[in-house]
Design a protein around this nucleic acid. Structure first.
Lengths: 342, 342
DNA sequence: TTGTATGCGTTATCAG
DNA sequence: CTGATAACGCATACAA
C-alpha cells in the first residue's frame, strides 16, 4: 500500500508538500499541486488514518455502548447516532453490554486504549459502582449519556420525558373511565422503572385515585414477567380494567396472557404500553402506546458529544436534553368503561 | 495520558522491557516484571492501540456494511458478528448504506483508509458496478459476503437457503390445498428477489401447477408495495387463495390490506411470508413464516473472515456457507382449502 | 535477560 | 512556498 513518501517521490516533491495539498491548509503552487494529485491518482494512494490519528491525537471515532442492538428500541437510536456522526466526519463503533457492568467496564478499557474521541453511553447501572465512568470523565473523556442518567454523576445527557409520557397515557385511561389501572414495572433500582412509575403515581394522585398495591407490580422488563403478572392480575378476584406495561417487551407477554385466557382487548381488558413497535402496528390488537423519539436521542446525543469534543469548555455546565414522547391512542384502549366495569 | 516511556522510567527499566512484559512473548525476570506491573497500575497506564496498530500493521478492527440497522433482519446479524468478533479480540465498526452504491463506495474508501483488517459485506448491488469491491479484493482486503452473493465475483460468503426455504413454504401451502398462490417479490435485479422467486417456481413446477402471471407480482420490499399489490390481488375477479410475501416488510402491507378490506386470515385468505418477526408472534394473525438464522449468518461470517485474516491462504478456494431456514407454521395458513375455494 | 535504536506513516515546525 | 526533520507511542531486531 503506497505511502505519502511514494507519492512525494513520484511527484518529485517532499512529503511536506504532499501533506500540504492533502490538508489544503497551506497554499501550494498549482504546478506542484497537480503533480501531487496525479501521483495520488496513479498510485491509488489512501492516507493512512492510523498514522494520522497517532500524530494528531484524535481518532475521529466515537464509541457507543448500548444494552443490546436486538432490542428494537436501540437500532433507531444507533442509526441516529451513526447518521449524525457521519455528517461530522466521525465513525461509530458500537458495543452491547446486555446491561452487565463487568462487560461495560471491559468496553471502557478497550475504548480508552483505542483512544476514541468521545463516548455515547447507555449506562448499564444507574447507581452502584460507576468508578470506571467517573474515572474516564476525570481523565477528560467526553461522555454523553443516552436514555438513562446515572445518579450522583453529573454528565451531559439526552433522555426522554418518561414520567410525562406515562402520566399522559394514564390520564388518557382515567379519562376513559378507568380507575383500577395496573402498572407493570421493570425491576427495582432501575432508572427506567423509577421514572416511569413516577408518571403513574403522578397521574393517579392528580386524579385522586387511591393506590391499590396489588395493581403495582414489579416485573423485570422481560416477556415472561409480563406474561406471568398479567395472568395473575387477570385471574385475581378483583382484576384491573386496564394494564399499562412499562416497556413493550413485557407488553408482549401481557398480550400473550390475554389471548391464552381467552380474553380480548379492548373488549375484556384495556391495554397500553411504553414504546411503540412500528412493526406490530398492523397486527391486532393495535396497541395504545407511548412513543419515544429514539432516532433523535441518538442524533442529538451525538451532536452534543461532538460539540463537547470540539469545544472542550472545561467549566461549562452540563446539558440535559429531555425529549418529549408522543401518546398514540389505538384500539387497545378504545373501549369506554361503563359504570359496571369493563 | 501516560506512555510506555513513563512506565519504563517509573519502573526503572527500558521501554523494551515494558513492551516485553506487556506482550508476554519474552521472558522477563520476576523482579522487573513486578516492578513494571506496579508502575502500570500506579500510572493507570493503557497501551495506545493506535500506536500499536501503526507498528504492527493490523488494527484488530472489522468493518461491517449493511443496508439498515433499523430493518429488523440486521440487528441479530450484527449481534452475531459482534459477539464472534469480540471473542477473537476484534471490534466491529458498522455502516448503513440503505443499499445505495455510492454510499457503499464511500464507506469502502473510509474503511480502507482506516486499515480495517477485514470486511463483512452485505452488498448493496448484486450486479452492476462492483469495481470498488473488486479492487479491494485485488489489493488484498479479506471480504466475506453476508446474505447476498454478488455476481461474477467469487468471494467467501455466508447466505441462507432462500430458494429452499420458499419452496418448503409453498409446498406447505399446496399441501393445504392451495393452487392459486400469489407471490410478491422485491424488485427486478435483486439477489433476494431472484433466489426466493426460484423457490416459488420450483415448488409450483414440482406440483404441476401451471403458473398464472397475474399471481406473480413484483413489489419493492417496502410496505406500501405489499399493501397495494395485496389490495389488487384480493379485489381482482379471480383472487388467490394464498399470498406469500418475499419479506416481512411487504407482508405488513399485506396484513394491512387484508384488514382494510374487512377480511380475516386465515378465514378469508391464507398468508405466509419470508422472515419471522419474533416481536409479532403474540399478535393476530400469527404468521406462518420462513425463519432465517440471522445471528448465525453474522457469527459464522465473522469467524470465517477472521480465519481468512489470520491465514491468508492466497490460492485457497472460496467458501460458500449456506444456512438452512426453518418453516414455522402458524395460524395464518391453518385453514384447509375446500374444493369450493377458501 | 535487558537495553538501544530504528521505523511504522503522518503532521507540524522551522529554516531556506 | 517548499523541504528537511523531529515527534506521535509502540514493537522489534540486534547488541550488550
Amino acid at each position: 500500500m503506497p505511502t505519502i513518501k511514494d507519492v512525494a517521490s513520484r511527484a518529485g516533491v517532499s512529503v511536506g508538500t504532499v501533506s500540504n495539498v492533502l490538508s489544503g491548509s497551506v497554499t501550494v503552487t498549482d504546478d506542484l499541486r497537480t503533480r501531487v494529485e496525479e501521483a495520488i491518482a496513479e498510485l491509488d494512494y489512501r492516507p493512512n488514518l492510523i498514522a494520522r490519528s497517532l500524530k494528531k491525537r484524535q481518532t475521529n471515532t466515537l464509541g457507543m455502548i448500548i444494552s443490546d442492538i436486538v432490542n428494537p428500541f436501540f437500532p433507531e437510536m444507533v442509526r441516529g447516532a451513526e447518521d449524525a456522526a457521519a455528517a461530522a466526519g466521525y465513525i461509530l463503533t458500537t458495543f452491547n453490554t446486555d446491561d452487565r457492568v463487568e462487560r461495560e467496564r471491559q468496553v471502557f478499557e478497550l475504548l480508552r486504549s483505542r483512544r476514541v474521541d468521545g463516548l455515547l453511553l447507555v449506562v448499564a447501572l444507574v447507581r452502584g459502582d460507576l468508578s470506571h465512568v467517573r474515572q474516564a470523565v476525570e481523565e477528560g473523556l467526553p461522555i454523553v449519556c443516552l436514555d438513562r442518567r446515572p445518579e450522583g454523576l453529573d454528565l451531559d445527557s439526552v433522555t426522554v420525558d418518561n414520567a410525562g409520557g406515562v402520566r399522559q397515557c394514564i390520564e388518557h385511561l382515567i379519562e376513559r373511565g378507568h380507575r383500577r389501572i395496573a402498572v407493570i414495572t421493570g425491576g427495582q433500582g432501575k432508572y427506567i422503572t423509577q421514572v416511569r412509575l413516577d408518571g403513574y403515581l403522578e397521574a393517579m394522585a392528580a386524579a385522586g385515585i387511591p393506590l391499590d398495591p396489588n395493581l403495582i407490580r414489579d416485573g423485570n422488563f422481560r416477556r415472561e414477567s409480563g406474561f406471568a403478572i398479567a395472568k395473575e392480575l387477570l385471574t385475581s378476584p378483583n382484576p384491573p380494567t386496564a394494564i399499562f406495561s412499562c416497556n413493550h417487551i413485557m407488553n408482549l407477554g401481557v398480550v400473550q396472557a390475554v389471548e391464552e385466557l381467552g380474553l380480548e382487548s379492548p373488549r375484556d381488558i384495556t391495554l397500553a404500553t411504553f414504546d411503540r413497535l412500528k412493526l406490530t402496528d398492523v397486527f391486532r390488537p393495535h396497541m395504545t402506546s407511548v412513543e419515544q423519539p429514539s432516532y433523535e436521542i441518538g442524533a442529538q446525543g451525538t451532536r452534543l458529544l461532538i460539540e463537547r469534543i470540539k469545544n472542550p469548555a472545561e467549566g461549562a455546565p452540563r446539558v440535559h436534553i429531555q425529549l418529549p414522547t408522543q401518546l398514540r391512542i389505538a384500539e387497545s384502549s378504545s373501549g369506554r368503561l361503563s359504570a359496571a366495569g369493563n
